[in-house]
Amino acid sequence: MLNPQHPMQLALGLTVWSVWFVALYGGLLTLIGPLDQWAHTGTGPHMVQHMLLMGLIAPLWILLRPQAQLVRGSGALGQPLIGGLARLARHPLWMAYLHGGAIWLWHLPAVYDLALDHAGWHAAEHLSFLLTAVLFWWAVLSTSARRSPFALLALLLTLMHTGFLGAIMTFGREPFYADARDLQDQQLAGLIMWVLGGIPYLLAAGWVTRRWLLHLSRRMANA
């Protein structure tokens, strides 16, 4: 499909490639690089790590449409699994509930501190964030024209509830978590979730709307 001779196609190819590059290496950097060390120094940096996972890497990865390759490469065992996930990903609102459930659950102080103390739980935390985020973004970003309004609702819901959680962390009268250096650290974490974390959802809302309108006009042209 891609024709490297054509300048537009080449530019598109380069864009896709660089997005892939950012997603992959950004992801590695977040999980194992210096950022992970930094994430142990306070709630704010830790939140940056989570936000990169959920708000940057997951959506970029989905935008690369890796599903086809995954199905190819995963063999007899993985294919039904990916097919099952694909069925789940047809329901943006349910995926938003699932993702929201994971976010709120891991932010309960007792659960959060558990993850801080045990590397295994920490891995589980990151895995559940990443997995539910991937499902959420998959459902939202590759939705059909008919389900686009639900994708927008799912985005609004997620924007609002992460905002509420961020607000609660911002206005809390004392630190909730064991890794907070001080109250300001937690406020920073809350604001990163509330304000910076909201940007991917806003951009996605614009993207979904644009895609939806394009779908509709294409259908109109065909009709």
Binding site: L152, L155, L156, L159, M160, G163, A167, W194, V195, G198, Y201, L202, A205, G206, T209, R210, L213, S217
Partner: peptide, 20 residues
């Protein structure tokens, strides 16, 4: 037209996050 529709929807989204 399409850009205006887009901006209407994005305005709606943004307005729910800025009450502070």
């Amino acid at each position: 037209y399409r850009w205006v529709v887009l901006s209407i929807i994005v305005t709606g989204f943004i307005s729910f996050g800025l009450w502070v």
